[in-house]
Write a protein that binds this DNA or RNA. Structure first.
Lengths: 212, 212
DNA sequence: ACGACTACTGAACAAGCGTTTAGCGTATTG
DNA sequence: CAATACGCTAAACGCTTGTTCAGTAGTCGT
């Protein structure tokens, strides 16, 4: 009777939202049916509509919930990161991500969907993070921690995109290097190489090579 | 009657495949109906099934077609790249991509779908590219063009993933920096910063900072 | 005690889906 | 000149989808 995973003692509405979040993250919005979500939450399909108006309403609620979770992650770290970077190990979006979300959380996968389906929610999220990255990079340059960039707008995008790529291609990376890069061991190995490349470079400059 | 875009004088089968490729790339497999594909190709829905057996058969054919296009891109460049890197500007996957596919080609977007939907075709593609990247990086290290990595497996993944990220997040990057990074101007700006970071580094090493 | 309200369900609905079927016209083949 | 095969279509089939409807059980304020 109860094939559902009752997450603690949450309300049915919260259970539906959580089930939808996980299923949407795993398989995409279109591939998941209202009946599946209802079954995963242990309720009837009609209750889903009763609480959220429609499947699109549920989708919007999930987008909102996930967006809040992501923003909370970064707003709490704006000061923290500012000193983390002047101090010891330089943090990355991917590192923060892995640390903030416990293993098995559907949120990284949901972020992937948000950024890949070209919906406004994903675009807005990226825009906010890009602005944050630019601000951070400017501060770091002033502090002398970051080398000045010839094209700051592109450099900020370059660094942000590189970090997000790890989240987006997590599964493929895991298959390639044999470790899930969003687990503690994976983070350590990844951060090691990222730090090395970002401080010492990866290639040797060849003569007569300039950006054209 | 002919709302279709007859691409030259191709056969109806090829027209269907091309229409499906474009629609799949734009909106994802599940969000596109057989009727839409048929309408885009200017044929009846039944003909789609007649030629490809089923919608999944069409999807497999499109996957195959796109996979061949991607592999051709890289197999033709294995030698070419080997000398390109020892010589002048160091190429990137994204650069090759942008140069190989004319503006407006659906293939970059289709690659995005392949890599983000966790289907075997995308995983296989990534695996092949990862192997290629590792080989290339080893050669470059031997030649003294690349700095030796402490963790070569991770470094290869890091560099590959960073390149792919530009393709995956193309739209968001375009919105952020104001230029589509897969156009000639965009490539130039992006390559400039990428080269700078990869040769000179982006951050200044701080004392007592080591991986882990 | 009683109506009102909320959480919730089983059954059904119309619409859209992928697919099937029967058949059209036009070639190619013996 | 029949016969077979191919490219192609209109119409319909069965199924699944999101959603609606009518109604049940429990709770709350009066």
């Amino acid at each position: 009777m109860s094939s559902a995973v009752d997450e603690g003692d949450l309300t049915a509405k919260a259970n539906i939202r959580n089930a939808a979040l996980r299923l949407f993250a795993e398989r995409g919005h279109d591939a998941v049916t209202v009946r599946e979500i209802a079954a995963a939450a242990g309720v009837s399909p009609a209750l889903v509509v009763h609480h959220f108006g429609s499947k699109d309403g549920l989708r919007a609620a999930v987008d909102d919930y996930a967006g809040q979770a992501f923003d909370a992650l970064f707003s709490m770290d704006e000061h923290e990161l500012a000193e983390a970077l002047t101090g010891g190990s330089l943090g990355s979006v991917a590192e923060m991500f892995a640390r903030a979300f416990p293993h098995g959380s559907p949120l990284p996968a949901y972020l992937r969907r948000l950024l890949l389906v070209n919906d406004p929610a994903g675009a807005a999220l990226f825009g906010r993070w890009y602005a944050l990255t630019r601000r951070l990079l400017d501060s770091m340059t002033e502090l002398g921690v970051a080398r000045p960039a010839e094209d700051p707008a592109v450099r900020a995008a370059f660094l942000l995109v590189n970090d997000l790529a790890l989240v987006l291609l997590r599964n493929q990376v895991a298959a390639a290097i044999g470790v899930d890069p969003l687990t503690p061991e994976g983070i350590a190995r990844w951060a090691g190489e990222a730090t090395a490349v970002y401080t010492k470079g990866a290639f040797v400059a060849t003569p007569g090579q300039e950006s054209s």
